[in-house]
C-alpha cells in the first residue's frame, strides 16, 4: 500500500496543480520583495498555486488590513505588526513565525564611498543620508538605533532624508540623490557580495534584531494556497534564496 502511494506521488504532484490550484493575495514588506519574487516563482511552479504579490511599507499594510484589505498572508518587516494583527483578531495566532532576520547595510551607489567600518558617517563628505521613515518602517528604527549606538545620530539629523519605505530609501541612494543611506542588505546584496557601489553590513549588535514575521490573515484561513505558501517559506529551497540575499535565520 505504502509503495503504491509512493508510486502514485509523481502522478499526484503533476495532477495536483490543476485540481487544487488556488490564488493567494500576499502582502510583502518592501525589503523582502525581490527575494520573495524568486521564491514565489519557484512556489508557483512546484504547486501550481498563483500568488498575487503586493509590496510596500509594513505600517501601511497594517492600516489596510485593519480596514478590510483582501490580503491573505502578510510577510512583515517586523514581529510587532503580525502580533498586533493577531490581537486585533485579523490574523491567526498559531500561524505566526519568524521567516527571516533582516540585516541593515550602509550603502552608496558609488564605489569607494562607504568603508567597511562605517567611518564615513563621522566625516562631512556628504549632504544627504537616506533612511526609511522610523515612524512606520522597522528598518528605519534599526537605522536610528545604529546611529545612536555609533554616537553619530545628532550630527546626522540635519542630513536625514526619509523614504516612506525602505524601497524609497534605496531609490534615493541608487539615483544618486542621497550620497548614502541605510538600506536593507537584501536590496544591495546578491550571491554573498554587494551587487554594486560600496557598502558596509551594519553589525547586528548595533540594533535590535530585525525579526521579520509571517502570519496567516483571517481572510486566508480556508485558502489552501495561503497555508502552502507559509509552509513553503520553511523549505530549504526558500531559505537558500533568502541566504543569498543576506538574510539570516
Amino acid at each position: 500500500m505504502k509503495n503504491l502511494t509512493l508510486l502514485a506521488m509523481p502522478l499526484l504532484m503533476t495532477l495536483a496543480p490543476n485540481v487544487h490550484a488556488a490564488e493567494v493575495q500576499l502582502a510583502v514588506a518592501a525589503n523582502f520583495a525581490v527575494p520573495m519574487q524568486k521564491i514565489v516563482a519557484a512556489f508557483e511552479q512546484s504547486t501550481g498555486h498563483k500568488v498575487l504579490l503586493s509590496s510596500g511599507a509594513t505600517g501601511k499594510f497594517y492600516a489596510q488590513i485593519s480596514q478590510g484589505a483582501p490580503f491573505e498572508v502578510l510577510l512583515a518587516a517586523d514581529d510587532e505588526t503580525p502580533r498586533r494583527l493577531v490581537q486585533d483578531g485579523q490574523a491567526v495566532a498559531a500561524s505566526q513565525f519568524t521567516y527571516a532576520q533582516g540585516r541593515l547595510a550602509l550603502w552608496s551607489a558609488k564605489q569607494g564611498v562607504v568603508d567597511n567600518a562605517g567611518a564615513v558617517l563621522k566625516t562631512a563628505s556628504f549632504k544627504h543620508l537616506a533612511i526609511a521613515n522610523p515612524k512606520v518602517a522597522p528598518y528605519g528604527v534599526a537605522a536610528t538605533e545604529a546611529m545612536i549606538a555609533m554616537g553619530v545620530y545628532s550630527s546626522m539629523l540635519p542630513k536625514l532624508v526619509q523614504g516612506e519605505s525602505i524601497a524609497q530609501a534605496y531609490q534615493f541612494v541608487s539615483t544618486g540623490n542621497a550620497e548614502l543611506g541605510f538600506v536593507a542588505l537584501s536590496q544591495v546584496y546578491e550571491h554573498g557580495r554587494m551587487r554594486s557601489g560600496s557598502g558596509w553590513v551594519v553589525p547586528a549588535q548595533l540594533h535590535t534584531p530585525i525579526k521579520q514575521d509571517a502570519v496567516l490573515l483571517v481572510r486566508g484561513r480556508d485558502n489552501p494556497a495561503a497555508s502552502a505558501l507559509l509552509g513553503y517559506l520553511k523549505t530549504d529551497a526558500a531559505r537558500a534564496v533568502m541566504a543569498s540575499y543576506g538574510y539570516v535565520h
Partner: peptide
C-alpha cells in the same frame, strides 16, 4: 522627491500620509 524633511519638504499632504501610516 521630497524626502519628508520638516520645514523643507514635509508639506501638509505628506504629513497627513505619515499620520495615517503611523495610525
Amino acid at each position: 522627491i521630497g524626502g519628508n524633511i520638516p520645514g523643507q519638504t514635509r508639506v501638509i499632504s505628506v504629513l497627513l500620509y505619515d499620520r495615517v501610516e503611523a495610525l
